[in-house]
Design a protein around this nucleic acid. Structure first.
Length: 220
DNA sequence: CTCCCGATAT
DNA sequence: ATATCAGGAG
């Protein structure tokens, strides 16, 4: 496990690597962000962004999603994958927004997670990006990077990872750090091909040293 | 825990 | 061919 000083070093380093890290899902208001994040489950941002511009041109409000036949919405988002459940969730979610929230996206996480297709991670993204609430959304990248670097333990659940990060990172840095961890995971510490040889954090990364040793490369 | 699922990288 | 992708519901 990393010490407090080592974690500060990690934050500084990923800050230098990705100073401008931010949400990469195309959106222009909280509702579009909510739909985009629901669509992004187990899909790349790039894939979602291919669909959403056209989608948001066709559907401008929860009412529009509520009224369209399910099969038509399924076809509109088919290329993203998991399209049947996502289409159903977006229609249900739109109905709830109209019925309970006057057609607007709530800013509270407790309210967001009551919406169809919205779990803790999605709620954190919406609260953080759309409403500027401090939050750390633990997605596949944040989880993988936190475990590889030794910020948390390998056996930790997603919720435990989030709690550990919130405990070890100052609240005012939560949102920007969370985006930098995602960029670090997405573009550098990649799942299949992590760039350990060129990693400025290799000296404190147990997993990176283990991986290089396995390839016959000695690291002190 | 399994299922949902197409696109892309490896 | 297989692994992975801003996960969540049943």
């Amino acid at each position: 496990m990393l010490t407090k000083k080592q974690i500060d070093y990690v934050l500084d380093t990923i800050g230098e690597m990705f100073p401008e890290a931010e949400c990469e899902l195309t959106h222009s208001n909280p509702f579009e962000l909510l739909v985009a994040v629901v669509l992004s489950a187990q899909a790349t941002d790039a894939l979602v962004n291919k669909v959403t511009p056209g989608l948001f041109k066709k559907y401008k409000s929860p009412e529009d999603f509520m009224e369209v036949p399910l099969e038509e919405l399924e076809q509109d988002i088919r290329s993203i994958g998991l399209f049947r459940s996502k289409a159903k969730n977006i229609k249900k979610l739109s109905y709830s927004l109209i019925e309970k929230y006057d057609g607007k996206v709530p800013s509270e996480r407790d309210e967001l997670v009551t919406l169809a297709g919205v779990g803790r991670k999605t709620a954190n993204v919406v609260a953080s990006v759309a409403f500027d609430e401090p939050a750390i959304a633990v997605d596949t990248h944040v989880e993988r990077v936190s475990k590889r670097l030794g910020i948390c333990r390998w056996k930790d659940s997603v919720l435990e990872v989030e709690k550990t990060l919130m405990r070890k990172i100052p609240k005012e840095l939560w949102s920007e750090t969370h985006h930098r961890l995602i960029f670090f995971g997405r573009y550098h510490c990649k799942s299949q091909s992590p760039q350990c040889m060129e990693c400025p954090l290799l000296h404190l990364c147990r997993e990176g040293k283990k991986r290089l040793k396995k390839k016959g490369i000695e690291v002190k």
